[in-house]
Amino acid sequence: MSESQTKNTSVAGEAKKRRSIPATAPLVVFLLAMMVFFTITSEYFFDIENFRNILVAMAVTGVVCVPGTLLMISGQVDLSVGSSAAVSGMILAKTVNAHGIVTGLILCLVYGLIIGSINGFFVTVVGVSSLITTLGTLATLYGVALLIGNGQTVGMRNFDWLGTAQPLHVPLPVVIFALLSIVGAVVLRKTVYGRSLYAIGSNPNAARVVGIRSNRILLLTFIYSGVASALAGAILTSQLSAGDPNAARGLELEAITAIVLGGASLAGGRGSMFGTILGLLVLGVLNNGLILLDIPTFWQRIAQGAMLILAVSFDQVRQKLNDQRQ
């Protein structure tokens, strides 16, 4: 309560000086610093082909990050995306072999709608927390993925374009991710639905009392997440030309790390699509750089876990700084 009774004068100059630290600014600095570091330490890093690799590697995670960001902003989380992508991939591999590509993709889409609805139903209608609901579906779906292929990888023929085609030299998965994230950014910034997500995340009780149809909105967002995970599974399977129940393991951790790095708060009400893309780039560049430096792959896992904790700690420090300034 430090504000003095300044009369209604909005002093523009003062307002600029007092602007709080943007969540994304330090992330940009960190990303650039990392790129400089890897450029110096590895001769292969600063190369258009390598950048393409980085983008392809982050595209699959990126696809689930789009609804993931919407969910995190509304105070929810979907941990099931990894297993869900695996199930989708197994379904695709099996049906493409037997009934063709179109049937396979339609089945994936239907599967995505169903799993999204199931998650959403338990969270909104039954009222189980999304953390627990999707932790449950994460475990269940991993079992389902193993069940479909009898624990084995299922080879898939004649459908690698979804994962590997390069229209105008841009990999198709990257195009898909770019389109989805643009839509996501517009939805978040410019639509009633997007703003309602922020409101729900900021104060779910107030959202209910002000008459926002929270359940409807959250159910819809979980369905998006289900469909996105199905799509991610399809892309992954197409890249590998095989449905592998273990291919998407840890996808949820990577997605959440990127989203949190990007400034979305687990407490809800904060975050942006742009931030999430930056978070993805940081992870992508880090993984890529570690590979180029010949560092064993298990270090990537360690680095990723450390990043998640760092990101959350940083968010706390930033909020404390902002509070002090007010």
Partner: peptide, 20 residues
């Protein structure tokens, strides 16, 4: 607890019922 969206701007808080 039931009224304001603490982390959102005053303009959004004010407009929430008039967005449509």
């Amino acid at each position: 607890r039931l009224g304001s969206f603490g982390s959102r701007s005053v303009a959004e808080n004010l407009s929430v019922r008039a967005w449509h």
